[in-house]
Design a protein around this nucleic acid. Structure first.
Lengths: 112, 112
DNA sequence: CGGGATCCGTCTTGATACTG
DNA sequence: CAGTATCAAGACGGATCCCG
């Protein structure tokens, strides 16, 4: 569903408004993960078809970039584009909020 | 689905990781909307069952609060709790990102 | 009329098996 | 390793109905 709104919040949520996209960004930006298997192994347990779908969607939107490994042609590395790197701010915002208000979370990013 | 992760990003996305929750927060915080009908009339067009579900969910999580109107007993006003108000930061983060990277959006919040 | 609840068809997810 | 295929279950969207 695309809402075709011109609101910046609605537009960003059209791309990122689901349970997985921002987690994949987190994995790439904070944990340094880059391969399909890496993302698949994250503790939250994304299904491979959903992972595949989200990677494709974020590539279409220029948030991430895919390239073949030079050492092993069977492996692909995903990385953040500048557009993807700049999602750090909203992600950190969410993280700060959770640390402040959700008791169970660990402040694993040690954000000031 | 609850992932039972202790990551602050994952935990906040368990509550807010969908296309509508943050838009309702936006409507309350930025547009000053407060009634069911107000939210329903937003340009993105949320269905009433979904709206009802999201309001309930965010009330359960203490993000919003509901009270009966004093002037009209048929009307209920939803408002942000402190926990909800503090979602402004991540929402502004998303908004800034969209303004920077998505050409079609209007910078309706005029965020510096 | 405002605030939902209910029903129903469709689209999306999630779990797992399977393939190049 | 990096996905695709399959299929059941659930979420969503739209319309309608109900209730005070």
């Amino acid at each position: 569903m695309d809402r075709r709104s011109d609101c910046p919040v609605a537009c960003s949520l059209d791309v990122l408004g689901d349970k997985w996209s921002l987690l994949i960004i987190r994995d790439m930006g904070y944990y340094g993960k880059s391969t399909f298997k890496d993302f698949e192994k994250s503790e939250e347990g994304i299904a491979t078809n959903i992972l595949s779908n989200r990677l494709k969607k974020m590539m279409d939107h220029g948030i991430i970039h895919k390239e073949q490994s030079e050492s092993n042609k069977l492996v692909y590395h995903y990385s953040l584009t500048k557009k993807g790197v700049d999602l750090a701010a909203p992600i950190i915002g969410l993280s700060r909020w959770a640390v402040k208000y959700i008791p169970e979370v660990n402040d694993i990013f040690n954000i000031k």
